[in-house]
Design a protein around this nucleic acid. Sequence first.
DNA 1: ATCTATAGTGAAAATCATTTTCAATAACGG
DNA 2: CCGTTATTGAAAATGATTTTCACTATAGAT
Lengths: 143, 143
Amino acid sequence: MELVKKKIFEKFIAEKGLKSTRQREIILEAFLATDRHMSIEELYLQLRDAHPTIGYATVYRTLKLFAESGIAREFQFGDGQTRYEHVTQGEHHDHLVCVGCGAISEFTNDAVERMQDEIAASHGFAIRYHKMELYGLCAACQK
Amino acid sequence: MELVKKKIFEKFIAEKGLKSTRQREIILEAFLATDRHMSIEELYLQLRDAHPTIGYATVYRTLKLFAESGIAREFQFGDGQTRYEHVTQGEHHDHLVCVGCGAISEFTNDAVERMQDEIAASHGFAIRYHKMELYGLCAACQK
DNA sequence: ATCTATAGTGAAAATCATTTTCAATAACGG
DNA sequence: CCGTTATTGAAAATGATTTTCACTATAGAT
Ligand SMILES: [Mn+2]
Ligand SMILES: [Mn+2]
Ligand SMILES: [Zn+2]
Ligand SMILES: [Zn+2]
């Protein structure tokens, strides 16, 4: 799974005439090693201990590249920070966001997905992607 | 309809011990007069001709108040600008966003709304609100 | 292995939307 | 009309992100 994403990114790099650098490898490792919805700052801070020389701007640039290459998806959950998550080929999910603790969980629902396509079609819209986020209190935060 | 919103805002102002100012009235008029999903800048620029003395910060502050009072809803459609739309009591809709021309259209779908509640419930989530946006090309932009 | 052209990097500066500060002004109950 | 308190506009501050730039590293060619 992670290997597949590495391959995809290497291919992307090669085809774009970009270069494979030590920093990109390190950031990719760190990104693939988490299953959270990481913000740029979070990833930067986590990286900093083991790799103090990697700059903030490089993390920004690299995460953007991940998104461009298709191995990452960019998000805005309303806390002012851009977050990134893994994209797995052929998989799609949406999110539940806790307004209490900020926890982000995932769900899939085929019926809703289908209906979204129908809604778009019925409006003559050629849908590219969608965003569906349910905000509320997670079980823990309700107590 | 617009009158109702004015009343709601007046009530909000009164209950909060805030003051009814000329600027707030003007901005409210302008906001209620449009049916678009206006960004703060758009509203500010539109206002500027007739009311050159109203400051940017006041527009910001006032739109936030509208949202707080319940007559407006705040949005982020990914273009980096916060947008506001009218909120009509008891009404809810979601959005289709054209990635070509930026046009924003609206739709409602009760079945999807219900399913969202079910999804949240099945995850032990106490849902507060949701965000569902379908991004793609509008009919005009497909040509 | 060395050279060369070009992409990438880190640090600092620049952007851009938004928020805050502050001195001056306006609203409103008495 | 007064005094108190909220509001305003302009400018400065903020915070996330992006750009700039001098220097470095990569990768293909020699
Ligand atoms: Mn996710
Ligand atoms: Mn709308
Ligand atoms: Zn929570
Ligand atoms: Zn369009």
